[in-house]
Design a protein around this nucleic acid. Structure first.
Lengths: 110, 110
DNA sequence: AACCTTGCTATGGAATTCATAGCATCGACG
DNA sequence: CGTCGATGCTATGAATTCCATAGCAAGGTT
């Protein structure tokens, strides 16, 4: 890993924010490629690394980086049956569900 | 715009998804850098381009690209007093608000 | 005219992501 | 034991995306 911005954490300044406001760190974390998608794909249950990769269509290196960040954030955890959302991860997913309905309206609008 | 993946749209395949499922397109749109942040920064009212840029700390070129995508998605619109959330944009922001509470818990957890 | 602010573009270099190939480990099978 | 398949994950070089800075064109003010 040649350079790499550090994993966003509350209390640490996120990209473009001096303040370490938690929501900024979260927006930074979730604004990285495949982060939102990973949480979404895990909504129905655990997926092993390769299945997750297939579901997202991402390269393994980036996926692994995202997974490390999400694990460090306590959103995702690795169990025997694959990657799964933690309890907090499930709560985060809950907050994401309305996005799907929004997207449905979006589709009808376009 | 030298290269540029196309703006995500429901009905069109998002990155890593053959299906044009609306939520995939939305996750793709919001998963690009500064997209979530822009919506968040506009929560308190309109901001002109430069103010938005200062609030995010992003470069003007990417910001302009994101704004174009968000405008095409009907999330953001440009008025006399600057960029603002559309009605749908406000609804999208509503779905984002729980993220802030989640982030607060995250901060206490770490 | 001489400013100021607006939205936005241009350019070159840095950071991130992609696509592919491959490694190491484990369990099952023969 | 040997081979196979599946696992998580790493390595490499190329493509894409993003950043930092400078600057343009249009409009308003003085």
């Amino acid at each position: 890993m040649p350079s790499a911005a550090s994993t966003p954490r509350p209390g640490r300044p996120a990209r473009g924010s001096r303040t370490g406001r938690p929501v900024m760190a979260l927006l930074d974390l979730l604004g990285r490629r495949w982060a939102l998608r990973v949480v979404w794909e895990l909504r129905t249950g655990p997926l092993v690394f390769r299945a997750l990769q297939a579901a997202c269509g991402s390269s393994p290196s980036v996926l692994n980086t995202r997974l490390a960040e999400l694990r460090e954030a306590g959103v995702v955890e690795l169990a025997d049956d694959g990657y799964r959302l933690s309890d907090e991860g499930h709560r985060l997913l809950e907050t994401l569900h309305p996005l799907a309905s929004w997207a449905e309206r979006w589709a009808k609008r376009s």
